[in-house]
Design a protein around this nucleic acid. Structure first.
Lengths: 195, 195
DNA sequence: TATGTTAGTTAGTAACAACTAACATATGTT
DNA sequence: AACATATGTTAGTTGTTACTAACTAACATA
């Protein structure tokens, strides 16, 4: 079945996702998708019936259920700096995998408001785990007494900012390199800026 | 000239901006704009010639040159927490005024990549001022020795995250209220999370 | 009263997009 | 050889959209 490397279906889905992540669902035409996948328009319709069908298939192929719980239970060492670094990488890796879907969810938030749930459900879950982690750390006296949920929100927000601004505009807003951004964020979160 | 409250032109521009901020430029039709402004399509064309003309006029009416420099020189007291609070409000107020333009810049980043400059130019400028401020604070021993530019980036990134996620999805991602978000962010930046 | 300004109505054009239908071709399998 | 499967080609339908043109109506001002 695979002639070159990817099957026809896969090539179509890959091209479609790439184009839709750049321009959104409605602004991409079947013609563009077909050209990018080196097939005729008819082939696209034969595989997926409708344009919406292409998107749905592409989403299905790109959604994964992330296993935060296990990863966190396994890797957390209850050292604030080390753990925040772990969490930061975990979150950014997750968002990277959801990059296309997230960008389509941005573009189509008026026409397909349910799309964003695919991303926000995971984020909410992770936020919950971080909140619980902060609570534990506070009980153990390893962290200041603060509102864990708010702190979890702010920590993820900082990382989300890095993700979304590079996804949308490359280095236009954030020119700092990823690792440097993460490292400095975590350190600031842990120790603050005051001397 | 003003019959009710706003002139016809203003009503058109206001409706157009509202619609485009929700759906982007290309996905809004003149028909929608005309209906929202309670005029006929012809009236829209008579006032602005083309659809692009509507956008350009709307942008012109909504861009302001912000006077950071004066505001900062006037209000900074060189107390880290107080100053970061000021800066946070300054930045979020600015972004609020650019909300529509920024959202259109998101939607049309493939077709009008120059749009985002209207927002990022201001942000870059402010980032520069914050960097300089951090440098001063470090010289005065009121702040840890760190990379000022990176810290300025991270601080603005955190705020940008609040702005963009509420602009795109209301409370879907960040449920924490604005003032609480700002206050906690600033405190974390100043004092960190470690006890 | 005459005139200019502003807006509405109606009809139409040209381009493009999603999708359908019918037919043709290549390739591999039985 | 016979057949199924995957793909291409071509032509068409239907709906939408930006934009134009021509005519009309209301209203304010000179």
């Amino acid at each position: 079945m695979p002639k070159n490397k990817l099957s026809t279906s896969d090539r179509i889905l890959q091209s479609a996702l790439q184009l839709m992540k750049e321009k959104g669902f409605q602004l991409v035409t079947i013609k563009e998708i077909a050209e990018a996948a080196h097939v005729s328009e008819m082939t696209v319709f034969r595989h997926f019936e409708t344009k919406k069908g292409v998107l749905e298939a592409a989403i299905e192929r790109n959604t994964v259920v992330p296993g935060f719980k296990q990863t966190l239970d396994k890797d957390l060492v209850f050292d604030l700096e080390k753990d925040l670094l772990q969490i930061a990488h975990l979150y950014l890796d997750l968002m990277k995998r959801y990059e296309s879907i997230c960008l389509i969810a941005v573009q189509e938030r008026a026409s397909m408001p349910e799309l964003v749930d695919l991303v926000s459900d995971n984020t909410e879950q992770l936020k919950g785990y971080i909140t619980a982690y902060f609570n534990t750390m506070q009980e153990e006296g390893k962290m200041k007494q603060t509102d864990s949920y708010t702190q979890a929100s702010i920590f993820l927000a900082t990382l989300f900012s890095y993700f979304i601004s590079t996804a949308l505009w490359k280095e236009k807003f954030i020119t700092v390199a990823k690792e440097k951004f993460i490292k400095n964020s975590v350190q600031t979160f842990c120790y603050g800026l005051q001397p």
